[in-house]
């Protein structure tokens, strides 16, 4: 028996919330994104409840996020030079999270989406292309651009950190 919409939301919200946060990099925006995606899912629940509703919600979130970005991009500015990086401290994991959060905000939504799908959802490039409705070449280009930019902004995320001096 198919689960109800409430059950679906209760069970899947934690995972979907995490994806929404990674897509937006902001709790408020993530909440709005998840809300909009679930609202859309609810309208088509009868049709999609027998299939894979979670995949549907994710797809809506990816597209919604890109759609919102199109309307907000005038106010969003990418800086030519990466900002000063946080100084290394002992709480390396915390620094890493902060660096990633900062870096993700400096990617375009498509780049960020490709990163999330590839390295968080563990989808192949072909699956990402299918989900986003674009070509594999486009996915590769966005993924390549995203990683290059991450290397500029936060090289510690994609490269092995340089060993600290023993002194």
């Amino acid at each position: 028996m198919a689960e109800t919409f409430r059950e679906f939301v209760v069970h899947r919200s934690p995972r979907l919330s995490r994806t929404a946060y990674l897509l937006t990099g902001d709790h408020q925006l993530a909440e709005d994104l998840l809300q909009a995606a679930l609202a859309r899912t609810y309208r088509h629940w009868r049709r999609i409840s027998d299939g894979d509703p979670e995949a549907y919600v994710r797809r809506v979130m990816y597209h919604q996020q890109i759609s919102w970005w199109r309307r907000r991009r005038i106010t969003e500015r990418l800086q030519s030079q990466p900002p000063e990086r946080a100084a290394t401290d002992t709480a390396e994991a915390t620094v890493l999270r902060l660096s990633l959060a900062t870096a993700l905000r400096r990617l375009t939504p498509r780049q960020r989406t490709v990163l999330v799908l590839r390295f968080y959802e563990d989808l192949t490039e072909a699956q990402v292309a299918q989900v986003l409705g674009c070509s594999v070449g486009t996915v590769k280009r966005h993924g390549h651009d995203a990683l290059r930019r991450l290397r500029e902004i936060a090289p510690e995320l994609v490269d092995v950190p340089v060993e600290r001096s023993a002194r």
Binding site: Y21, L34, L96, F119
Partner: peptide
């Protein structure tokens, strides 16, 4: 690998909205 770990760590920070 570090990117994956970082993504997982950042995602873990997000509560269920």
């Amino acid at each position: 690998a570090r990117l994956r770990e970082a993504l997982q760590a950042v995602a873990d920070d997000a509560p269920a909205y």
